[in-house]
């Protein structure tokens, strides 16, 4: 592997015959370097004569392997700091693993399109910005514009600058754009935590559609309800390692027991 790779077109393909994985996370380790000081200025670099800076290594993910197939929705659970988000960004190819590798049949889309959006511009202009950032052409965005606006449920707010939006509205717009690209592999990091009940239901339905169309979804969530309702598998991550993997009901039950919050998903 390495230099001779060709990106696969991002499209929900149908599987014939043998089941082929969509994403393979292969013994991934991620070690963050937390530097003791600030990013070096030229003066400091000269002062220490280009000696490398001192840092503390924090092992956020320590040897995780996951194979996800088309049509699967994998939930990742765990406490704060257990490595969920790091793992997700790694699976998205955005964070190179320190050791191990991630393989995917197409470039995964992390539901983080909001970073591409410009708060000064209207929701409508931001749909173009986000859509093209995700690799659509302006024409493609144009064709789906009314559908995206509809899904976002923003109504007349769509022509107001985004800085006037509530956090729930921003999240809705982001989800509407990212899911309309019809990603083959969609990674969601807590993005669904904001937003109201109606949006929850809509996004849940959209995730189910993606899975139904042989897409693959990874979901980091604290809302355990969505895990048991939508996901086909759950992985409980603890201090960078897989603690338990399997049926969502069982994993959620075990996780809740360990955290002592056994009020079960609402």
């Amino acid at each position: 592997m390495g230099a001779d790779t060709e990106p696969v077109t991002a499209q929900a393909g149908q599987q014939v015959g043998e089941r082929r994985p969509a994403v393979v996370v292969d013994d991934v380790h991620v070690t963050y370097r937390v530097y003791e000081d600030v990013k070096p200025t030229l003066r400091k670099m000269l002062a220490r004569r280009f000696r490398p800076r001192e840092y503390r290594a924090i092992e956020a993910v320590r040897g995780v392997s996951i194979t996800a197939y088309p049509g699967e929705a994998v939930a990742i659970l765990g406490r704060n700091g257990s490595g969920k988000s790091t793992l997700l960004r790694c699976a998205a190819g955005l964070l190179p693993p320190t050791r191990g590798a991630v393989y995917a049949r197409s470039i995964p889309v992390l539901l983080g399109v909001n970073a591409a959006l410009n708060p000064e511009l209207s929701g409508r202009r931001n749909i173009f910005l986000g859509g093209t950032a995700l690799g659509m052409t302006r024409k493609e965005v144009e064709a789906r514009l009314s559908e995206i606006i509809d899904f976002s449920g923003l109504g007349e707010f769509i022509d107001m600058p985004m800085r006037a939006y509530s956090s729930g509205m921003k999240a809705r717009l982001g989800f509407a754009v990212a899911s309309m690209v019809e990603p083959d592999i969609l990674l969601i990091d807590e993005a669904l935590a904001v937003g109201d009940a109606e949006f929850h239901q809509k996004s849940q339905q959209r995730i189910e559609e993606l899975i139904g169309g042989a897409g693959t979804v990874f979901l980091v969530s604290h809302s355990l309800g969505i895990v048991t309702e939508v996901c086909t598998r759950a992985i409980w991550l603890d201090r960078g390692r897989i603690e338990l993997e399997g049926d969502p009901e069982e994993v959620v039950a075990a996780y809740e027991e360990s955290t002592g919050t056994a009020h079960s998903g609402e």
């Binding site: 592997m1 390495g2 230099a3 790779t5 060709e6 990106p7 696969v8 082929r20 994985p21 393979v24 998205a92 190819g93 964070l95 190179p96 693993p97 590798a101 991630v102 393989y103 995917a104 049949r105 197409s106 470039i107 995964p108």
Partner: peptide
């Protein structure tokens, strides 16, 4: 794994 691409290369 066939049809898969290593990410981040």
């Amino acid at each position: 794994p066939d049809g898969l691409v290593q990410l981040g290369t």
